[in-house]
Write a protein that binds this DNA or RNA. Structure first.
Lengths: 187, 187
DNA sequence: TATTTTATAGAGTGATTAGTCAATCTATAT
DNA sequence: ATATAGATTGACTAATCACTCTATAAAATA
C-alpha cells in the first residue's frame, strides 16, 4: 500500500525524465503524474537528486536480476554469454525507457552521485563471468575491462540498430550480432 | 572581435554543461565565465535551447572536418577506414569535453531540437564511405546503417577503455581495436 | 482503547532563472 | 562630421521550482 505510491513516483519520474530531461521535469509534475501530492514525493525521496539516484539503482538492479534469472548452472560458458547478450537487448526493447534512462544518467553529472561501491557491485556479475571465461580459455586472454566495454558497446550498437527495425526482422540481426562479437573474443 | 565573444560563450557553455549538466548551468554562469554580460549571451543566442543546439552542431562539424582533413585521394579504402577510426578516437582524447558533450546531447531530449536534416547531413560522410566500400566489395554486404552503428559503438567502446589507460599504452589498444572491427566486416 | 508513528495532502516560501529592455558604446560607411 | 547599424551592458521581471511546514488521517503498537 505505502510502497505503491513510492513505486508510482519512480515510474512517473522515469517516464518524464526520459521524455523531458532532468531539467524539464519539475518534481511537482512527477507528483501530479503519479497521482500523489507534492509533499508525499518528498516524504519518500529527500531530494530530487536522491530520486534520480534511487531510480538509477533500481533500474540497474532490475536488469541484473533479470539477466541472472535467465541462466542455469548447466549452461556452457558460451550459452551464458549468449543469453546475457540476447536478453540484455530483449530487455532493452521491452523496457525502452529504462534502457535509455541508464544511459541518460551515465552521460550526466548525476552519475557522480551514485556511490562508486554501488557501480562496482553492479559490475561484478559481468566481470566475474568474463574472468571465468578467460581462466577456462573459452575466450582470449584480453583485459577484462576491455572485453566488458567492447561487449557493452556492441550490445548498445545492436540495440540502437534493431530499435528502428520491424519487430519480425530483429531476431536475425541479434543472432548475427552475437556471432560477430563472439568471433571477436574467441580464436 | 565580435565573433570572439560568441566563441567564448560557446567554450564556456561546453565546459559548464559537461561539468554541471544543462540543468546545473544557468545562462548567467555561462555569461560570467565567458566574461560577457547576460544580455550579450542572448544577443548571440535567442534562447538557452538554441545555445545547446548550436554548440552541438558546431562540435560535430569540427569533428567531421577534422576527419576529412586526414584523408587523401590516394588512400586505399582500408586506409580511409583506419584513419577515420583512429582519428575519431585521438580527436576524442584531445577534446574530451566535446566528445562527451555529443553523447550528453544524444541521450537528452535536446537531441530532438536538432533538425533531422542536419543530423542526416552530418552522417553523409560516413554513410557514403561505407556504401563505397560495399560497392567495391572491400567490406561485406551488410546494411549500411548497421555497419555504421557498430563501428561507432566500437569507437566509443575503445575510447572509453583507453581513456583510463596511461597515455603510452593507448596506441596498441587502438591499433588492435581496428583490427578487431575490420575483421568483423571483411571476409 | 490509548498512544505513537507513519503517510498524505497541499498551501506557502525563498531563491533562482530565462529572457527583456532601455540605454550606451563602437565602428564603419557616406 | 554625421548617420546608421550592430554590440554590449546590467538592472529588472515574471515565472518557476525545490523544498518546508502545518494539519490531518491512517496504521501500527502498547
Amino acid at each position: 500500500m505505502q510502497m505503491d505510491k513510492r513505486k508510482k513516483i519512480l515510474e512517473s519520474a522515469l517516464k518524464l525524465f526520459v521524455e523531458f530531461g532532468f531539467h524539464g521535469t519539475p518534481t511537482s509534475k512527477i507528483a501530479a503524474n503519479a497521482g500523489v501530492s507534492n509533499g508525499t514525493l518528498f516524504h519518500y525521496f529527500g531530494t530530487k537528486e536522491e530520486l534520480i539516484k534511487e531510480l538509477y539503482i533500481a533500474v540497474k538492479e532490475e536488469l541484473n536480476s533479470f539477466l541472472s534469472s535467465k541462466i542455469n548452472a548447466s549452461d556452457s560458458m558460451e550459452e551464458v554469454f549468449r543469453k546475457f547478450y540476447q536478453h540484455s537487448i530483449y530487455w532493452g526493447l521491452d523496457n525502452k525507457e529504462k534502457f535509455h534512462y541508464v544511459q541518460q544518467v551515465h552521460f550526466s553529472p548525476h552519475i557522480f552521485q551514485i556511490p562508486e561501491s554501488v557501480l562496482q557491485e553492479q559490475l561484478q556479475l559481468h566481470l566475474g563471468l568474463i574472468e571465468q571465461a578467460k581462466a577456462t580459455k573459452v575466450i582470449k586472454n584480453l583485459p577484462t575491462n576491455l572485453v566488458y566495454t567492447l561487449m557493452l558497446s556492441h550490445v548498445n550498437g545492436i540495440y540502437t540498430y534493431v530499435l528502428h527495425l520491424p519487430a519480425n526482422k530483429r531476431k536475425a540481426v541479434i543472432d548475427d550480432g552475437f556471432a560477430m562479437i563472439w568471433d571477436m573474443f574467441t580464436e
